[in-house]
């Protein structure tokens, strides 16, 4: 059974009849040029945007799930967050347990995983963009949900935190979770289990990165020529 199934995801002017299936335990990337419809598709998958799409999580149609159940089954992280009020880092991460009756389970682990221990009492409206992103990701992980939809989580992160996140994503998916996230770094996309390419609101290709990310496709979709050459490689020590 697929962890995620989406049929006919469409929003007039933004996205057209996209079908997508992800097996359980899959670390999947969503790529495409600016304005291709990545954020829209992620919100439809997460059940946050009204549309005619048929979405099901682990075989259960979304409309059969209550809002609270959805909060337990999937997380969503927006591309950028604006915080008006000065909630502490810890209390924002703890919001991830709302759908579980605020049981605080795994909150401190999530804080440690994203190296937020020193910031735990800091107001979130005083953090840098990358720190805010880590707080939101920690909240998403704290939900303990089996499905995650993250919108460009790597963009504001420094190189090491980006690699840390990929590492964590790999661990979570090996433990049975499923993650779909949008990204722009095509080299990182090569390390994933699965990539889906959106172009002008349509699903252009999907599959394993080796098969999908051909030089022809990259030229057509992104307008760039791909060439393999020795260069800088970053890894976790």
């Amino acid at each position: 059974m697929n962890a995620l199934e989406v049929r006919h995801a469409g929003v007039p002017g933004r996205l057209e009849a996209v079908d997508l299936c992800l097996p359980r335990g899959c670390l999947a990337g969503l790529i495409g040029p600016n304005g291709a419809g990545k954020s829209t598709l992620l919100q439809i998958c997460a059940g946050l945007l009204p549309s005619d799409a048929q979405v099901s999580w682990s075989g259960r149609p979304l409309q059969e799930l209550s809002v609270l159940e959805r909060g337990r089954l999937a997380s969503w992280v927006p591309q950028e967050a604006r915080f008006e009020f000065g909630f502490s880092v810890r209390s924002v991460v703890a919001q991830g347990r709302f759908a579980h009756g605020d049981d605080e389970l795994g909150v401190d682990d999530a804080i440690a995983q994203f190296e937020l221990g020193d910031l735990r009492n800091r107001p979130v409206n005083q953090l840098s963009g990358g720190e805010r992103q880590r707080v939101l990701l920690a909240r998403a992980v704290a939900t303990g949900a089996p499905l995650h939809f993250w919108d460009e989580p790597l963009a504001p992160l420094d190189p090491r935190h980006a690699l840390d996140l990929l590492h964590l994503g790999t661990r979570l998916t090996r433990a049975g979770s499923t993650i779909l996230f949008s990204l722009h770094d095509l080299r990182l996309a090569h390390c994933l289990d699965y990539v889906a390419v959106l172009h002008q609101g349509r699903l252009r290709a999907a599959g394993s990165p080796g098969e999908v990310l051909t030089p022809e496709l990259l030229l057509e979709v992104f307008g760039v020529r791909a060439r393999t050459a020795p260069g800088l490689v970053l890894e976790l020590p």
């Binding site: 946050l48 009020f85 709302f98």
Partner: peptide, 21 residues
């Protein structure tokens, strides 16, 4: 009160965490 906490940090975010926004 608790739901207002989540809403005050963003409606979509609150919805994704299980609040009937």
């Amino acid at each position: 009160g608790r739901q207002m906490d989540l809403l005050s940090l963003g409606a979509r975010e609150a919805q994704s965490l299980g609040v009937d926004v």
